[in-house]
């Protein structure tokens, strides 16, 4: 697949690094108290973030923002069994550049809404946006059956993802953030992806992972637009991590010598979507960690 870029098709958004740590299912042999579970996950997020930053060589003081996003970690906060400032405090022990804001309202598209928020802040405060980190965590912390498997996307996959993005040149139309207006959000999202891709010839789409029936719908609606393979059979649906896992897998199995342009796409069950046109380069750090050890 030829995904190399020329001057006319360059994106101002560059992926400096992606790291992923798969989480086992079940997370533990026996359920543990939720505050302990969250602390143990913090002990995995913090080092992964530091590992990725170190390999990119970017000084930690360069990062403007770091958001932690999730689709399914919601009940521990909704029930007030844990609170975010405590978790953020624990993360801070790994450095000031660790995530300090938790975003899950937009479900799988939370990373895109966080990116939009960061760009908006930079614009409002009149500084040039530069480096931003998004970490995404989805873990079945209560071992609920419906998070393992359900009719919407069948098997789920769990993990911790960290993505470092650089705004290399001021962005114009690289980011598309929105929400479906119809009942069939996933099909509507596919039409938005197609429309967006028509304005971005040559970009390769990295879609969320879905079962075969949804994959077929994407195939039909995208009408042969180039896309990375769907990895649902291997990983299950990994929520907002899917496009990043797709890019990571592609980058690890294909040596990237010239910049390659992609569209990272996520859609939430409630219809919110995020599409980002971005580039992988020969400098992009790609880390696939071993599955998290229960400890």
């Amino acid at each position: 697949m030829n995904t190399e870029v020329n001057n006319q098709t360059v994106s101002g958004l560059v992926v400096k690094g992606i790291a992923f740590t798969p989480l086992p299912q079940p997370l533990f042999d026996q359920l543990r108290p939720i505050d302990q579970v969250m602390s143990m996950l913090v002990q995995s997020i913090g080092p992964q973030v530091n590992q990725l930053i170190e390999q990119t060589g970017i000084p930690t003081t360069e990062f403007d923002r770091h958001f932690l996003c999730s689709t399914m970690i919601e009940l521990p906060f909704t029930t007030q069994s844990v609170n975010w400032p405590d978790i953020a405090g624990q993360l801070k022990e790994y450095g000031e550049h660790q995530p300090d804001t938790f975003v899950n309202a937009y479900e799988c598209a939370s990373w895109g809404y966080s990116l939009r928020h960061y760009l908006k802040q930079a614009e409002g405060q009149k500084y040039q946006a530069k480096y931003m980190i998004v970490s995404i965590i989805d873990a079945n912390v209560y071992d609920f059956e419906f998070w393992r498997y359900n009719d919407h996307w069948q098997h789920s996959g769990f993990g911790i993802t960290t993505v470092i993005l650089e705004v290399e040149t001021p962005l114009t139309d690289e980011i598309t953030i929105g929400s479906a207006v119809t009942h069939n959000g996933v099909a509507e999202f596919a039409t938005v992806v197609r429309r967006t891709m028509m304005k971005k010839p040559g970009a390769v789409v990295a879609l969320p992972f879905f079962p075969v029936n949804v994959q077929m719908m994407f195939e039909k609606l995208l009408r042969g637009q180039p896309s990375l393979p769907d990895l649902h059979a291997k990983y299950g649906h990994c929520f907002g991590a899917d496009p990043w896992l797709s890019l990571l897998t592609h980058g690890l199995s294909n040596k990237i010598e010239q910049p390659q342009r992609f569209m990272a796409c996520s859609v939430a069950l409630n219809g919110y979507y995020a599409i980002a046109e971005l580039m992988l380069t020969s400098d992009t750090v790609l880390i696939m960690n071993k599955e998290w050890h229960r400890g």
Partner: peptide, 16 residues
């Protein structure tokens, strides 16, 4: 689904 006006670009929705 969250109403569209709460998804505006000057609004951020957060658990905390």
């Amino acid at each position: 689904r969250i109403p569209a006006n709460l998804l505006a670009d000057n609004v951020l929705l957060l658990e905390d």
